[in-house]
Design a protein around this nucleic acid. Structure first.
Length: 569
RNA sequence: UGGGGUGUAGCCAAGCGGCAAGGCAAGGGACUUUGGCUCCCUCAUCGGAGGUUCGAAUCCUUCCACCCCAGCCA
């Protein structure tokens, strides 16, 4: 059998199909080499995660390599802080570029020399047109461009001028280097695109060594080529740039030139992905920072309690195609529930406490109840929780006048207290002043203790609880979708819908509960630890949490079919 | 308007001429000391119209819709 023959059960995305074909034809000598090339001008979000998983994933599947490369060709927008956060996040997601961490800025000299080659071939020229004039000469969609009056300078003159540009002889914006292609091209990117500009800006890595910087369209194909990239994967909006990408490499006589392949960026329902909109939310104070648990940033998701595994599973399952699409955020939620269901220990926490007194239970008795840590994982073991006469239950688990299909506690009815006894409601106390129920009275069935023979008796419902005397106070933060609706986002810089988008910010995206109670063992929980609060959802200890001031973030609620019953009524 | 792309269920997404995978969501049901998990069942004729073919989501023609491009951003 041909070793290059690839057999797979799973459907293959169109990029993998291209790679399969290239391997079969022994293109690039059978090598597969990709890269994830962020510009260090902001924090990574789940849209980047899609690209990271795609690139590193394809490398892994094909026995290839994937580089991490910072595309730092514009010092006016880039900062070290972003480089550090990006490195941290990509590692956190679980990917390894080994020793292949690169910077476009490391190639500045080589790029400069290649520009000289283009000039020598008569393929590039120095242009003195002002930015406004460049724009006017470019023409429009329907009107062809006009040649720059500087287009026919001699090679010698261009060489001399370009060197002087580098030496800082000219002011910012006064000259540019342009590729000489075709001012009549229907593709505006091919109308003598600017490939170098003069910009006196201190670069975070090269300092003040350079005052000219290459443009993306010129730099990117070279970066890929220098690193021997085979498949240069980027997003759809660069499709029109592909002819220029190829032009640069062709005119430099590149051998085994990399090929650019475009896929659709990720959009998620009920949130935003573009840097500018994310920034608006942070700067206008709609959220607390770039790692606010409501944001789709990697740092936000991490603080929210998302695991790298869930994010990667999500990215793998949404697929890769060229269709603009918006993935339902409920699919992301499904992925984290699925992961945490296997991993998170079950504990009891009462978010909105209601006192319950067991009148026939001995006043001073404390029993240690045995609780299984995770029914999905037998190796997770069990723990003891103290039980006594006064406990707290969830306020919504008692109803003095229960609606139909309500299975929980109400006057005269029985429920099981999880891992403890069956109790029957005998009475409750209503406070006229606060117009609320302040306590519930029950009697318990001593024969019904969990694990004992009498425990087999079935009751309609089981509810969670915490012991009044031993429970710990905690702050619990509940999150809801960032936006109440979906916003169409197909490119990074779509500013048309900025106003509409602010109108969609969900005013109830966060709810903070200050008086919640958790079982005593949670006292020592450390930031980042994840739990399932039984019947309520998955929660993570917030990064600001301390032993004396416990804070939990709700990662995601449990699926709730009772809520659905209520909603459908 | 010129160019470049995309259109398969509420949301993703396979399919590449032979009688529409899968997942999420939704709705039923079984099980259950989490109204959780798990398990079972239900849920499309492929943007429209023509045509080619014994046979088309897949080929051809044409129309329509949506997205991207006129930064010395990436």
């Amino acid at each position: 059998m041909d070793p290059n023959e690839i057999t797979r059960n799973e459907p293959v995305n169109f990029i993998q199909a291209i790679i399969d074909k290239d391997k079969k034809n022994n293109k690039y000598g059978g090598r597969v080499h990709l890269r994830f090339p962020p510009e260090p001008n902001g924090y990574l979000h789940i849209g980047h995660a899609k690209s990271i998983c795609l690139n590193f994933g394809l490398a892994e599947k094909n026995n290839g390599l994937c580089n991490l490369r910072f595309d730092d060709t514009n010092p006016s927008k880039e900062e070290i802080e972003y480089i550090e956060s990006i490195i941290y996040d990509v590692h956190w997601l679980g990917f390894d570029w080994e020793d292949r961490l690169y910077y476009a800025s490391d190639y500045f000299e080589q790029m400069y020399q290649d520009a000289i080659s283009l000039i020598k071939k008569g393929k590039a020229y120095v242009c003195d047109l002002s930015p406004e004039e460049v724009k006017d000469y470019r023409g429009t969609f329907t009107k062809p461009g006009e040649n720059s009056p500087y287009r026919n300078r001699t090679v010698e003159e261009n060489l001399d001028l370009f060197q002087q540009m580098r030496e800082g002889k000219f002011e910012d914006g006064s000259k540019v280097l342009r590729a000489k292609i075709d001012m009549n091209s229907p593709n505006l990117n091919m109308r003598d695109p600017i490939i170098y500009r003069i910009m006196r800006e201190t670069h975070h890595r090269t300092g003040d060594k350079w005052c000219i910087y290459p443009m993306y369209d010129y730099a990117h194909p070279l970066e890929d080529y220098y690193e021997k990239i085979t498949h240069s994967v980027c997003t759809l909006e660069f499709e029109d740039h592909r002819p220029l990408y190829d032009w640069v490499l062709e005119n430099l006589n590149a051998i085994d030139a990399p090929q650019q392949i475009e896929f659709a960026r990720l959009n998620l329902s009920n949130t935003v992905m573009s840097k500018r909109k994310l920034r608006m939310l942070v700067e206008a104070g709609y959220v607390s920072g770039w790692d606010d648990p409501r944001l789709p940033t990697i740092s936000g998701l991490r603080r929210r309690g998302y695991t790298p595994e869930a994010i990667r599973t999500f990215c793998d399952r949404i697929g890769v195609a060229k269709t603009n699409s918006t993935v339902d955020i409920r699919f992301l939620e499904h992925c984290i529930r699925e992961d945490l269901n296997k991993k998170a220990n079950r504990v009891m926490a009462v978010l909105e406490p209601l006192k319950l007194i067991i009148d026939n239970y001995p006043d001073d008795l404390v029993e240690e109840m045995d609780c299984e840590n995770n029914p999905e994982d037998p190796t997770a073991g069990s723990r003891k929780i103290p039980f006594s006469k006064i406990i707290y239950i969830e306020r919504e688990d008692f109803h003095n006048n229960p609606p139909s299909k309500y299975y929980r506690l109400s006057p005269g009815r029985e429920v099981r207290l999880k891992n403890a006894y069956i109790v029957k409601c005998t009475n409750f106390v209503y406070d006229e002043n606060t117009e609320s129920i302040t306590e519930v009275h029950c009697t318990y069935d001593p024969e019904s203790k969990s694990g004992q023979p009498g425990a087999h008796r079935k009751v309609k419902s089981t509810i969670h609880w915490v012991p009044a005397k031993f429970a710990k106070k905690a702050e619990i933060r509940l999150y809801d979708y960032l936006l109440t609706d979906n916003i169409g986002e197909h490119s990074e810089d779509d500013s048309d819908n900025d106003k509409d988008f602010i109108k969609m910010v969900n005013p109830q995206s966060i709810e903070i509960l200050k008086n919640s109670l958790v079982e005593p063992g949670l006292q020592n929980a450390k930031p980042g630890e994840k739990f399932q609060f039984m019947r309520k959802g998955y929660f993570v200890v917030d990064s600001d949490s301390t032993q004396g001031n416990l804070i939990f973030n709700r990662t995601v609620s449990l699926r709730d079919s009772w809520e659905r019953i209520m909603r459908n009524n």
